[in-house]
C-alpha cells in the first residue's frame, strides 16, 4: 500500500468579493457576494513508505492547502485522496492517530501548560502505551535537548524551543508518516540544523515517511530525497532531488574581475577559444561566464583565464532555488542575481 495516494485533487475556496470604499462595504454587508478561488487545480501524488518529500512553492501556490487536506483538516472539493489507506477528512479520528503533523506557525501544545503536561495529555489522548511513551520521551529529550524546558509553560518558550517541543509532541505516538508545514520558519541557524538533523534521523533510522513544505531550499536539501514543486495549484516538477538539482542547476555563473591592465574583450576571446563559452562583459574589468555542469568546471575556466591574464578576483555563483524555479517557469531573471557561493 502506498503511504499517500492522490488523484486529481482539487480545492476551491470561497472568497468574499468586496467593492472598494464605504459603499462597497455597505453593499457587501447587505448582500455579500462570493466567488470561487481555485487553490489546487488537480494534483496527483504517489508517495511510498520511507520516502522523504519536499513540497516547494511560492506563497499561495497551494502547499498549505495540500497539507491540510492530507492531514484531514480540510475536505477536497474534488478528487481521490488516500493516506495510509484512510480518507483523511471522512475518517479523521482514525486517520490522525496514524500521522504526526507540525505546523510551524501554530502550536499543537497547550499554551498555558508546562511542556511535560502537554506530553502527558497527548499520551492519554493517543492511548500511547506507557513503555513507548517513556522510551520516546527519553529519546526526544536527548535528541532535541528538551531537558531544560520540560517544566516551562509553552507560552514562555522561545520559538526554537517551542518548535522542538512541538516536534516531539507530534511524534510521541510513533507515527509512520509525518507532515511538516514550514518547520524551520523563523528559526535561527542552530535551531534549523537541530530540526533538520532530527528529521533526517527519523527518516533514516526509523524509516518514517516525511512530507514537508518549506521556502528554504536548504531545508529540503537537508531533509528530503524527492522534490515536488508546486505553482498556482499544480505540480510542475516531481523528481529525485539530486536529479532535479542537476537538471535545474545546470547553469552556474563565474564572474571574473581582471586587473586594469587587461582588456576584458580579450579575456572573453580566450575563454571562447578554450571552451566555446560566450561570456558577457559586465564593465571594463569584469566579465561573466555562464556554463553548465556538463560543459566545463569552474577550476578549468579559472585556469584557462589565469594562464593568459591577470585575475584580481573571481566569484562562483550557484543559482539559488528562486532562480531555479524561475528558470523552470521560463521567466527572465531580475538583475543582479544574488550570490550564494562565493570564493576568492
Amino acid at each position: 500500500m502506498r503511504t499517500i495516494e492522490v488523484r486529481g485533487l482539487r480545492k476551491e475556496y470561497r472568497i468574499p468579493e468586496k467593492e472598494p470604499g464605504l459603499a462597497g462595504t455597505v453593499k457587501h454587508f447587505i448582500r455579500p457576494r462570493y466567488r470561487a478561488k481555485p487553490a489546487l487545480a488537480g494534483i496527483d501524488l504517489d508517495i511510498e513508505p520511507g520516502e522523504s518529500v519536499g513540497y516547494l512553492g511560492s506563497n499561495g501556490a497551494g502547499k498549505s492547502t495540500t497539507i491540510k487536506i492530507l492531514t484531514g483538516l480540510l475536505s477536497p472539493t474534488d478528487g481521490y485522496v488516500r493516506v495510509n489507506g484512510f480518507d483523511p477528512h471522512r475518517e479523521r479520528k482514525r486517520h490522525v492517530r496514524e500521522i504526526g503533523a507540525v505546523f510551524g506557525h501554530r502550536t499543537g501544545l497547550w499554551w498555558d501548560l508546562p511542556v511535560i503536561d502537554s506530553f502527558k495529555t497527548l499520551s492519554s489522548m493517543y492511548r500511547i502505551p506507557d513503555a513507548t511513551y517513556r522510551a520516546n520521551l527519553k529519546l526526544f529529550t536527548e535528541l532535541l535537548e528538551l531537558e531544560e524546558f520540560l517544566s516551562v509553560p509553552v507560552r514562555q518558550l522561545s520559538l526554537g524551543q517551542r518548535m522542538r517541543a512541538d516536534l516531539a509532541a507530534a511524534l510521541l505516538h510513533d507515527p509512520k508518516l509525518i507532515f511538516l508545514d514550514e518547520p524551520t520558519g523563523g528559526l535561527d541557524v542552530n535551531s534549523k540544523v537541530a530540526v533538520r538533523q532530527f528529521i533526517r534521523h527519523l527518516n533514516q533510522q526509523q524509516g518514517t515517511t516525511i512530507f514537508l513544505t518549506s521556502h528554504d531550499m536548504a531545508d529540503i536539501e537537508g531533509m528530503c530525497n524527492r522534490l515536488i514543486i508546486l505553482d498556482r495549484g499544480s505540480a510542475v516538477l516531481d523528481e529525485d532531488i539530486d536529479k532535479a538539482k542537476h537538471r535545474l542547476a545546470a547553469d552556474r555563473r563565474l564572474v571574473v574581475t581582471v586587473s586594469d591592465t587587461e582588456d576584458v574583450a580579450e579575456v572573453a576571446r580566450t575563454v571562447h577559444n578554450a571552451s566555446g563559452l560566450t561570456c558577457t562583459m559586465l564593465d571594463r574589468q569584469r566579465l561573466s561566464c555562464e556554463f553548465g555542469r556538463t560543459e566545463a568546471t569552474a577550476a578549468h575556466l579559472v585556469g584557462v583565464i589565469m594562464r593568459a591574464h591577470e585575475i584580481v578576483d573571481f566569484e562562483l555563483r550557484e543559482p539559488t532555488l528562486e532562480q531555479m524555479v524561475r528558470r523552470l517557469f521560463q521567466q527572465p531573471p531580475p538583475s543582479p542575481p544574488p550570490a550564494e557561493v562565493r570564493s576568492r
Binding site: 491540510k68 492531514t71 484531514g72 483538516l73 480540510l74 479523521r92 479520528k93 482514525r94 490522525v96 492517530r97 503533523a101 505546523f103 501554530r106 499543537g108 497527548l122 489522548m125 493517543y126
Partner: peptide, 9 residues
C-alpha cells in the same frame, strides 16, 4: 483547525 489534528471530537 489544528485541534482537528487530535484524535478526539
Amino acid at each position: 483547525s489544528l485541534e482537528l489534528l487530535k484524535p478526539v471530537h
